[in-house]
Design a protein around this nucleic acid. Structure first.
Lengths: 220, 220
DNA sequence: ACAGCCATGTAACTTGTTACATGATTTT
DNA sequence: AAAATCATGTAACAAGTTACATGGCTGT
């Protein structure tokens, strides 16, 4: 989603052709996420289909310029004015993995943590080295690139803290004899579930499973 | 990718049918990422196609059990033993957005930062409240759920620090008169690029763009 | 009878990735 | 002539999301 919006935002500055958009995107992100050229033409097709851009005529050298529409301009403004959704969008691969692993019998979760820590540390070291080369950016390219490197560094730093914290947590849980989760043996009952109104009112909205899902997912 | 691996890991504990996998996944992740049922059957189809699981016979109630194969077992072991790829996989939406926004003329980047901060803060507040309810987990379900909540909290905390840091950085950059990036006006030259051997040797591998991409992307 | 869960599945769709095909242009 | 870049595109595929169809079972 962000690539689509990024390309549209660049087109908001003026007409571009496909190949040019790749260059512009790479300049502005320091080549951190190299864009495949083919993907750009696909994205342009979809943007055109959604009437956010319009394809102009090709110039003498055969370059096909795309121009942003009013709807496209509005879309860019809206994108810049609204926050990135951290709710549904952010499904952290390692968080899922760790949660699942912690419930599996016969899995050394401490080892899983350690493997991830080593990998994260190595990446963080490289990023820190990279950062030193452009710590005082003078060009807008370097500035944009520094933002991204900083973002990665802060994120990895947070992950490392989480890993440390989790290690302690799991040690305490093991001490408290929290066991892994076997497959549920009870086959669920079919049919409309039994509703005990008295019990419902007594516990109110305090039921663990209900309050938990709502608190995190936060559906408005 | 993580959903696929998670389901396979659960199947590594014993045969399950589709609907059951949804329940098991939700138990183990606290319902943070609600899995669509249809998606599970699709994933099972692909796992079977890749010979990681095998479909057994349906039982009397019409439940179709899947069983993990040797290859599937090996895949789970390999998954648990290797780190999650933070290189290519992690393309942070907001990092891209911020980098692009910082290069666009006429965009109030401080405002973009502020909007994101408000959103992140609100989420963090909710998560902190959620965490208090299960700070001393006694069941494996609560433990797994706490891991995920903690992970989100640490990540959002890191993001907030990054936002604060970035605000200062952008203020300094503005003071140093780092301007936004207009579209490149020079049309690139076609054909095989000119290679100045003398210049190449002089600068060596120190060229900014080259070293930067390698340092971050780290292709082995 | 009907609501609501259990259970399986299909169809259409989106974003994104990889690989490939094609031709023009220009330097070696 | 060969190599490398500029430039446009297509095809196949993976993973995920949403919506829908179908039937069985059971409590109200």
């Amino acid at each position: 989603m962000s690539i689509r919006q990024s390309l549209l935002a660049i087109l908001d500055q003026g007409p571009c052709y496909g190949y040019q958009l790749r260059t512009e995107f790479d300049r502005r992100t320091g080549g951190t996420w190299p864009l495949n050229v083919g993907q750009i033409y696909q994205t342009l097709d979809r943007l055109e289909r959604d009437d956010l851009i319009a394809k102009g005529e090709a110039d003498a050298e055969g370059r096909a310029y795309y121009e942003i529409t009013d709807a496209g301009h509005a879309s860019v403004a809206s994108w810049l004015a609204s926050p990135v959704d951290r709710q549904s969008a952010t499904r952290d691969e390692f968080a899922i993995k760790l949660a699942i692993a912690s419930t599996l019998p016969g899995v050394d979760v401490a080892q899983v943590l350690q493997v991830q820590r080593m990998s994260t540390l190595a990446l963080l070291r490289d990023l820190t080295r990279t950062k030193q080369a452009i710590d005082e950016p003078t060009t807008p390219e370097d500035l944009a690139y520094l933002l991204i490197v900083d973002g990665q560094i802060f994120r990895l730093d947070g992950e490392l803290r989480w890993l440390d914290h989790t290690e302690g947590l799991l040690a305490r849980a093991a001490a408290a004899a929290v066991k892994p989760l076997p497959l549920s043996t009870e086959t669920p009952k079919r049919g409309r579930p039994f509703r005990d109104r008295a019990a419902d009112e007594a516990s109110g909205s305090e039921r663990a499973d209900a309050s938990r899902a709502e608190a995190v997912v936060l559906r408005p």
